[in-house]
Design a protein around this nucleic acid. Structure first.
Lengths: 376, 376
DNA sequence: TTGTACGCGTTATCAC
DNA sequence: GTGATAACGCGTACAA
């Protein structure tokens, strides 16, 4: 008994118009005659032939579109199940002018404290996409280099795109606009036309700041990062909202705002100044900065919250093992990714989604500030 | 002068076999007659027609394969340039049984200190892939759920896969093996058949540990994470290599090894014990654990390195703002991603790549240990 | 050197 | 309810 290895000839057309007894006709690997690994590279044509029906019928059975006899449908589905056939999505795409891919733009130069955000956001996106039969194609953007995104778009590899970070002068967004590629932005943008999904940073930061004032604090400092990130602006607005609602300077409130702080050294200098000026509480725009602030205070032997309070406008896992635990705001980032993906699908289905979706937040008062052990 | 909007009719065949004067025949958007946005949805057929040559000729001009007249080639390329046409990669793929996508498997449940690793690894992969005309498709794996990977593979969305983390019982790897999907693993594996790219963790950890012994230390403790990660095993081996080379217990060397430590609370308990037992140095297998150890020591007012030394077997940015600076090992993770991607391309080109590629490392002796201010 | 005629795997149209 | 047939955009053996 010979098991002659048979090369899957005619892959790219062998000239003979023969369509006789094929076995994994689309195969690209070696196979043995009698035992063709059924699950692989089976085509709609193979099934049609095996069942003595037309390709059209098989297609209909699978898609559920068009009329088809209940029995025929059952037979096809049974065969499909038995040989666990799965359609070639690329070919489906070619026929429908779709790719079943969504692009996700990730910054390649984010700092530590932002990474959990992107990770969880990706998780939400991937799960939602996967459940809808889509795959996620990544483009990393570093600085002004959006070449990866350009490639993906120019090559028509994606049906739409999700932006996971928004800048005030956003190169990726400008590009997508220009090319008329459907996209959704995670994080707010100044472009009101754009579909965006974000947490309500402004309200969240206002609420947290309000609580600090409610504790009787009067000298609060704010340290923030890159001003070009739209979220920095939102948080700042929330902070100011709270200040204004308390009566501002007229009510004896003193604030000290420092933005564009990006490294530990700068934080150190700022903190030293703030301590000298007898600031009662330092509010940080993100956990990276907050970590730096805590380090500095620890090295200077300044007790938190007894001598100075500290709070953060973000709650990542960066600080989770810290003592004292840090008062901050918690967001459901995975949900953010999910929502963004759903919005994109809406657009793709022509159900033009709403402009801006705001998700909630949770203020977590912990030991470092606002818990009552105030120094103020 | 009317600019009648003309719907790109006949997308899926309008019945008329007409091939006359088409403008973006593959278009799916509205266009104006005279000013069809040339760069979009131009096909090889459009170009052929415009230039009065055959599609084959255009194809050849672009691919460089097959003989073609220098002048003809020039004309085609000029036209392509002028209208900045770019081929439909999906269609190319369908014709060549390729996708021009590589899959990347990411853990969806990694802890903070691992994230910079995955980020940089991705960066290396994406850049290499992009330069080779490939895109990166992400599959997130959480726990035993490899459904996203399964979808991508079953749907033939990828030509090959890169695994960014390896476990001793690796579900994704098992799956890829079974489906005979070409893959490369970042990180070592027990499967010797698999193509793998890794840093030489064993040598690196041995070298670092050797230095500690060279400082005269005799009581060293090791704290490690998940035992199922292959890298945990490698690092442990390196540590043991150093111990053995120093003569081990007979030479008066005491070691204390604790694995599967994953949370800050456990670290605290372990550290307390180690301090009681007058350990001279705590070596951490990664920076997350190291961060926890430093926190605990700081809270207990135990000075590093004066009272106890601390070193880490990994150098992420998690600890970069810490004081004292931590002695650890530095790897070029982006290079790791690059190499992995290159190896995958070798396999895809049939140039069966070597089994295991080991990349280098750099031991960074800083303040926290091995710098001379020993407590031992 | 160039063109013809398929084929890749699927969907959509239109007859039957 | 079912089946040819023509797209989708591109590559390629073979003929010219």
């Amino acid at each position: 008994m010979e098991n002659t290895p048979v090369f899957a000839a005619g892959i790219f057309g062998d000239g003979s118009g023969l369509q006789g007894m094929r076995c994994g006709s689309a195969g690209r690997r070696f196979k043995t005659e009698n035992q063709c690994m059924e699950e692989k590279n089976l085509t709609i044509g193979d099934i049609a032939q095996a069942l003595g029906v037309s390709k059209t019928t098989v297609s209909r059975a699978m898609s559920g579109k068009g009329r088809i006899g209940e029995e025929t449908r059952g037979r096809v589905l049974a065969y499909v199940e038995a040989h666990n056939y799965s359609p070639n999505v690329v070919a489906q795409g070619l026929a429908q002018n779709k790719t079943f891919n969504i692009g996700v733009v990730m910054p390649g130069d984010s700092n530590i404290s932002e990474l959990p955000f992107f990770q969880n956001c990706m998780l939400g996106i991937c799960r939602t996409a996967s459940a809808a039969g889509y795959d996620v194609l990544i483009s990393m953007v570093t600085g002004e280099d959006i070449s990866q995104l350009e490639r993906a778009v120019a090559n028509r590899k994606v049906d739409g795109v999700i932006l996971t970070r928004t800048l005030t002068e956003d190169a990726p967004m400008r590009y997508l606009r220009e090319k008329e590629v459907p996209f959704v932005a995670v994080g707010s943008t100044e472009d009101n036309e754009a579909v965006q999904v974000d947490n309500d940073h402004r309200s969240a930061c206002r609420e947290l700041t309000d609580r600090l004032f409610a504790q009787g604090l009067r000298k609060i400092a704010l340290i923030g990062g890159d001003e070009r990130f739209v979220v920095t602006g939102s948080r700042l607005s929330g902070f100011r909202d709270a200040v204004v609602s308390q009566g501002g300077a007229e009510a004896g409130i003193r604030t000290d705002i420092t933005l564009n702080v990006s490294d530990a050294r700068t934080v150190e200098q700022v903190v030293e100044r703030l301590v000298r000026e007898e600031t009662e509480c330092i509010v940080c725009m993100d956990d990276f900065l907050c970590g730096c602030v805590l380090n500095t205070l620890q090295n200077r032997q300044i007790a938190v919250p007894e001598q100075i309070q500290v709070a953060s406008f973000y709650d990542s896992t960066v600080l989770e093992s810290r003592l004292p635990s840090v008062t901050s705001i918690r967001f459901d980032v995975e949900e953010l990714g999910r929502k963004a993906c759903e919005q994109l699908f809406h657009i793709l289905n022509g159900e033009e989604a709403g402009g801006c979706t705001l998700l909630g937040y949770e203020v977590c008062v912990r030991e470092s500030a606002g818990s009552g052990k105030t120094a103020g």
